[in-house]
Nucleic acid binder design. Structure first.
Ligand SMILES: [Zn+2]
Ligand SMILES: [Zn+2]
Ligand SMILES: [Zn+2]
Ligand SMILES: [Zn+2]
Lengths: 142, 142
DNA sequence: AGTTTATTGAAATTATATTTCAATAATACA
DNA sequence: TGTATTATTGAAATATAATTTCAATAAACT
């Protein structure tokens, strides 16, 4: 947590932006929850801590945290963007349960390597990728 | 084309739905273009053939064609759904160029196999998946 | 303390997806 | 062929999430 607050402060200082209590609260709440959160979900939780903070500030702060490398926007294709922790979390892919909405984070170096090869064979320079496997999780199989 | 029209007609008959000129025109236009098309793009083209056809009819017809197995909705995460041909086109993944918006369709059986293994190891039953690699295509590297 | 200007937050706007509903037209049947 | 039934159409309305606008506020600097 401390390190992430530092990163935010550096990001703010380097760009001549301003440290505000809103930004710090939003970052703290975001970091305290090890989940993928939509702006709306985060806003609801942040409001409990400080009812004065508005939705748009949460929205803008998350965009800023993304620029600062502290969070990552993900899209499961259901029309809602979600954010996940980025600092200290390596790249991973997702198994998304269509019944309960839960997800498992996975990483497979072999798949990653094959993807790079696939891109190279098509003379394509890969920047990032999205791999999501949709199905039914163990709990929902019951 | 003939075979796809047949599939649509069977789908319509089996369910007690009705064959309409709109549905046939939309399917014919869709099949005639080997591209990923949004409802809006398709609507613009369809209107040239028959200006009476409305956006919503194109929208609903595409949903129906998807049910009939004739098209597949894809989402590159830019807020617009696009449709691609499904009949006679096997599963594939996409390399999407962030500069020009073009895409390359690719398939790598090894990646597909590793994905299934990855799911199984997590006691997850995969139904479908989405693999998109974003970057720069050969033409845009110039 | 005063000045500058980034930030905030409510409201407005944008953009796409989806629903509603009265009019229309495809199908079944007398 | 005409009539009844009901699926379909298309314009308009609505839903939903993302994004922009702008006047008021408050950090940061002198
Ligand atoms: Zn990956
Ligand atoms: Zn994740
Ligand atoms: Zn695949
Ligand atoms: Zn494709």
């Amino acid at each position: 947590m401390k390190r992430e607050i530092e990163i935010l402060d550096n990001f703010i200082r380097e760009r001549g932006l301003r440290h505000t209590p809103q930004r710090e609260v939003i970052l703290r709440v975001f970091l305290s929850i090890e989940k993928h959160l939509s702006v709306d979900e985060l806003y609801t939780i942040v409001k409990r801590r400080n009812p004065k903070i508005g939705y748009v500030t949460v929205y803008r702060t998350m965009k800023m945290l993304e620029d600062a490398g502290l969070c990552n926007e993900i899209d499961f294709g259901d029309g809602v963007s979600r954010f996940e922790h980025q600092y200290g979390h390596g790249h991973h892919d997702h198994l998304v349960c269509l019944k309960c909405g839960s997800y498992i984070e996975v990483i497979n170096p072999e798949i990653e390597k094959l993807q790079d090869e696939l891109a190279r064979r098509n003379r394509f320079v890969p920047l990032k990728h999205k791999l999501q496997i949709f199905g039914t999780c163990n709990k929902c199989l019951g």
